[in-house]
């Protein structure tokens, strides 16, 4: 395979997978430590109506309206979960299940009535992800990597994913110690006078933003795999907060890159016509990673 075809066909999806894996692994560790794994499940579903609405209002499959709609939907979902917990006396898990399915259903309904489905916003994209469709036809060779005109033609999804990844990384780094305390003991964080509500909302918004950005590449439901699996695997392997969070990001990126490689390029390089949905492969690897970590962790516990 020559440089041009690698750059055209493989680099964009590979980069998108890497960025999505790293971002979700980073944020997912915080969610798992907060015992809010189901929030990952909830937000990745609940952003759908916002995405559809943003799309329907502007008629564009552009990043910003969809991102804006998704963030609004995420905030509404978080508020709705709290409300259902209080008004229906439900425990957090059941309230989460009640709310996110309703949001997802509203999104499906929106897809029908807005006609978005027929135009561009394919349901398959939500359900399966379309990593393979990210291409960079303007690339002609390694020189394109420094050619501004060619770079400007990189898939739009990649830009959004990169921005969300950068914002997440900076936010987690800057709020490192408060986030650690928030995960461990939110009540004590409040006693110390930390802005608990703002930190919680910020985390939810980052997860929602990551879900939207990753949504177009790996699909709405497989975002959950990237958010939870690397974090759960690290949870079984380390007793250090830093290792958990940074390791989660690294593992997420690694799994994403490996999964993409195993799904498309590897069979192709072996001369097989078989190609596997890359997002599915990445999520499956996530489950394998957790299973392996559980086995390793058991050995470690037995040894220690």
């Amino acid at each position: 395979m020559d440089a041009a075809s690698f750059l055209q066909l493989d680099l964009p999806p590979l980069l998108a997978a890497l960025l999505a894996g790293a971002t979700c692994g980073l944020l997912g560790s915080l969610l798992v430590l907060r015992r809010e794994s189901l929030v990952a499940d909830a937000l990745s579903h609940a952003v759908l109506p916002g995405i559809v609405l943003g799309f329907a209002l502007t008629g564009l499959r552009a990043g910003l309206p969809m991102l804006g709609g998704a963030l609004v939907a995420a905030l509404l979902a978080v508020a709705a979960i709290g409300m259902v917990q209080r008004w229906a006396r439900l425990e957090a898990g059941a309230a989460t299940g009640a709310v996110f399915t309703v949001f997802f259903a509203v999104g499906l309904l929106g897809l029908e009535v807005s006609g978005a489905r027929s135009v561009d916003l394919d349901l398959d994209c939500v359900l399966f992800g379309q990593l393979e469709t990210l291409v960079w036809p303007q690339a002609t060779g390694w020189g394109s990597l420094v050619d501004p005109a060619a770079l400007a033609a990189l898939p739009r999804q990649l830009g959004l994913m990169a921005v969300v990844a950068a914002v997440s990384a900076v936010a987690v780094a800057v709020c490192w110690r408060p986030l650690k305390l928030l995960c461990f003991d939110a009540g004590y964080a409040a006693v110390l006078g930390l802005p608990v509500r703002a930190l919680e909302t910020g985390l939810a918004l980052l997860v929602a933003a990551a879900a939207v950005a990753a949504f177009e590449s790996v699909g709405s439901i497989l975002v959950v795999a990237l958010l939870v699996c690397p974090a759960a695997a690290m949870r079984l392997l380390t007793d250090r907060f830093g290792t958990q969070v940074l390791g989660g990001a690294a593992l997420g990126a690694g799994l994403a890159a490996l999964g993409y490689g195993l799904a498309g390029p590897l069979p192709a390089a072996l001369g097989s016509a078989l190609s596997v949905n890359a997002a599915g492969m990445i999520g499956t690897l996530g489950g394998v990673a957790v299973a392996l970590a559980a086995l390793l962790g058991r050995h470690r516990a037995a040894a220690g």
Partner: peptide, 10 residues
């Protein structure tokens, strides 16, 4: 909660 999320997504 994490077990549910891992199983359903993987």
């Amino acid at each position: 909660d994490a077990a549910i999320a891992v199983v359903l997504s993987a």
